[in-house]
Amino acid sequence: MINLAPHISVKNLNVYIGDAHILKNISIDIPDKKVTSFIGPSGCGKTTLLKTFNRLLDRQNDVRIEGQVLVDGEDLYGKDTEVTHIRKKMGLLSQRPFPLPMSIYDNIAYGPRIHGIKNKKKLNELVEHHLRSTALWDEVKDRLHSPATRLSIGQQQRLCLARGLAVEPEIILGDEPTSALDPVSTQRIEELFLQLKDKYTLVLVTHILRQARRVSDYIAFIYMGEIIEFGLTEELLLNPKEQLTKDYIKGFIS
């Protein structure tokens, strides 16, 4: 069905939280340098699936994960897998922006510093570059050293995106990244996504069908912990093969 080289490849993934079987035998190949969206009613497991990609899920208690998630062919859940360098490959945008408790500048510089860049000049360049690529530079260049929490919520979300980009990831994960934003900020984030897909693989979780349609190349419809259907955006939305997908798109299931 999808012939492109997969960037993330999920094989027979099962996730249990306590006694609940949250994800059931998920297999999916996320194509490289495309935007893939997970849609589905709330509680269907789409956010859980996203969180298995950067292994933030296993920080939770009582979680059991079976199966494989391969990123560039490397098994995330392998015994000797080093998590931090895989997380570095993926930027995360959460539902609400969470700027770190430091200045705008330090938020961006945090990642590069952690990964060993100490050179002031290099850091300055990085900060400027990534603030420009998220269209924040002109808005914040005069107050780089004021706390990031003073930004508006839309600016904060772009800052979080820039923060993620600064560690040069290959993949960007978005967990309903616009759900807390106003329409104008939402539009800017969506525009950024479209620009970014030349260089990055994007995976978004969204419950807004029209957003999925606007930004994504591929859509996976998830229901009750299973992938019901996965395909090209237009195909899936206009010609769904499964009855469940049809019902969801028409708004019968929510």
């Binding site: 933030l56 920080r59 993926m90 770190l100 408790p101 430091m102 945090y110 952690i114 560690v167």
Partner: peptide, 26 residues
């Protein structure tokens, strides 16, 4: 908020770096 730690971890910080720069600071 645990999202704050997750933000730091998702950049590739180790657990200890996250504690040092985010948790303790906050």
């Amino acid at each position: 908020p645990k999202e704050l730690s997750e933000a730091s971890l998702s950049i590739g910080a180790t657990q200890w770096q996250t504690i040092k720069y985010v948790l303790l600071k906050k």
